[in-house]
Simulated scan of single mutants.
Amino acid sequence: MTSTTTHGRPRGFDREAALDRAVRLFWRKGYETTSVRELGSELGIGQPSLYNAFSGKRALFDEAVEVYDRKYGGFVEVALVEEETAVDAMRRVLTEAPMQYTRQGLPCGCLVFGGDAGTDDSDVRAWLSNVRNEKTRGLKGKIQDDVSAGVLPEDTDVEDVAAYVMAVLSGLAQRARDEAPRRELEGIARIAIAALPRTQSHD
């Protein structure tokens, strides 16, 4: 008889495809309300195989967040690298967010902002908080560079501006999860963009 498993996993098990399905399940439901049983069903494997392949729900969630940010998120980091100024980067991020959070065929919202909703697991909260804070630090660094270069006024509150952009993104993600139409999110983004600090003229 031919074995149907390999090292505790079904023969032909595609780990990357299974991981992508896990990303989408956590994205839809968050860490707390996603059960091991649901994960097994979504990935098409039993609980022992799930532990063999991913070391359990928590380890799978951590990996799912990393994959999400690399494959589906990460637009904040891209803007910070590709845009010349912090204001341009923030405008781009806020402009793109409504589309990012309402893509057809994908869950609404953002796993990084919503994945820890409702959980009492302090490690999960700390993990996602660190991911969010890392993005905030990236924004702060870009803004501070522009202040130092005279692109933005000296009195620009670097921390508050970065926190403001992240708070707007969080709100947009939540509105998307609440099934608000994209046009509403775009309207919110326009208001937020209008409140950004203005670059200084050096004419």
Rank of each mutant, 00 (worst) to 15 (best):
L111D: 11
W27I: 04
T33D: 12
M90D: 15
N130Y: 08
V67P: 04
P107G: 04
P107T: 04
V67W: 04
A79N: 14
K29N: 14
Q100K: 15
R92W: 10
E42F: 01
L50R: 01
L25Y: 03
D121F: 09
Y51Q: 02
Q47P: 08
G114V: 07
E66P: 01
N130R: 10
E84C: 06
Y31V: 06
F61A: 06
R92G: 08
A117L: 07
A89P: 04
F75H: 15
K29L: 09
L80S: 03
R91S: 12
G109L: 01
V124C: 03
L106T: 02
S49K: 06
V87P: 12
T95W: 13
L106G: 02
Q104T: 12
S129N: 12
V112R: 05
G56K: 06
W127P: 02
R70F: 07
A64P: 13
D69F: 02
Y31R: 01
L111H: 10
K71W: 00
N130L: 09
G44R: 09
L60K: 03
C110D: 14
T33A: 05
Y51R: 13
G115S: 06
Q104S: 10
E77K: 00
G56M: 08
N130I: 05
M90T: 07
D62R: 15
R103W: 02
E84I: 10
G56Q: 08
A64T: 09
G73K: 05
G46T: 11
E66Y: 11
V124A: 00
E38S: 05
